[in-house]
């Protein structure tokens, strides 16, 4: 299968600190890959490199959008990368608090629309149609994620689990081929986590997208992912299917420490 995301020997240095060190990672089409590792292993830094928030020190990131052709996206601006079809959520929820739920999703459609200042002022037919299209698509996404009851609610007034889902909805609105989820289950109760599991699988099936996620909830990771990559101290220490990772001594060591004798 084709790699939609291909990271080759990527390094990110902050002064003398190697937050990400020679990491390689691939995500294939329609695959769910989990990135795990202890706190401070460099998972979120890797995410920030992929999405353009940081410019990596060394290495290459290639993406292959469905349209064909492989492109290097190092050092591209954040919004350009989103436009190319990579969308992300944040570890600490970063919704637009004082905008309505629907508007949050409509923002996601921004890069797929064209209306300019003149269009906004004149409200010509084209702009009105585009606006209507944005509203309808956004509402459809909300419905799909079970958020349609909150349409006009301000994002900050939503319950926690719904806020997490809204972040996913907002990311989905940008029409991505690869969705990057940074700890989507953080702070969720077991019931909500199970629902999230079903939701992620459903998104993959219905939308034909690949998913790369960072997660600490092992039950979720094991049941959900096709492949798992494990990071520790900025390095990739293991990669493989859930069953292999479960047995990997390096992974156990990273999580439980050197002195662990089972």
């Amino acid at each position: 299968m084709e790699n939609v995301l291909d990271i080759k020997h990527l390094s990110m240095h902050f002064g003398g600190l190697k937050a990400v060190d020679q990491v390689s990672l691939t995500v294939k089409r329609r695959e769910i890959v989990a990135l795990i590792g202890p706190n401070g292993a460099g998972k979120t830094t890797l995410f920030n490199c992929i999405t353009g928030i940081y410019e990596p020190t060394l290495g290459d990131i290639f993406i292959s959008p469905p349209g064909g052709g492989q492109k290097r996206i190092n050092g591209k601006k954040v919004n350009e990368i989103t436009e190319r079809g990579l969308a992300r959520t944040f570890q600490n929820i970063r919704l637009f608090q004082n905008m309505s739920v629907l508007e949050n999703v409509m923002i996601g459609r921004h890069c797929r629309a064209k209306a300019g200042i003149l269009g906004a002022i004149l409200k010509d037919k084209k702009t009105r149609e585009e606006e209507q299209d944005i509203i309808e698509r956004s509402y459809a996404i909300l419905k799909k994620l079970g958020l349609d009851a909150y349409v006009n609610e301000l994002a900050k007034n939503l319950p926690y689990g719904a806020q997490r889902r809204l972040e996913i909805a907002r990311a989905m609105a940008t029409d991505p081929f690869l969705l990057l989820l940074d700890e989507p289950a953080a702070g969720m109760n077991p019931q909500e986590t199970r629902e999230l599991d079903a939701l992620i699988v459903r998104l993959r099936e219905e939308e034909n997208i690949s998913i790369l996620l960072i997660e600490h909830d092992m039950k979720l990771v094991m049941s959900l992912s096709d492949r798992i990559s494990v990071m520790d101290y900025g390095q990739m220490i293991a990669e493989g299917e859930p069953a292999e990772i479960r047995q990997n001594s390096k992974v156990i060591k990273a999580y439980l420490g050197e002195d662990f004798h089972a």
């Binding site: 954040v78 919004n79 436009e83 944040f90 905008m99 923002i107 890069c111 940008t174």
Partner: peptide, 11 residues
């Protein structure tokens, strides 16, 4: 509301 999230949404 949020500069980083705003850029990450393609603005």
């Amino acid at each position: 509301e949020d500069e980083i999230a705003c850029q990450a949404m393609g603005i």
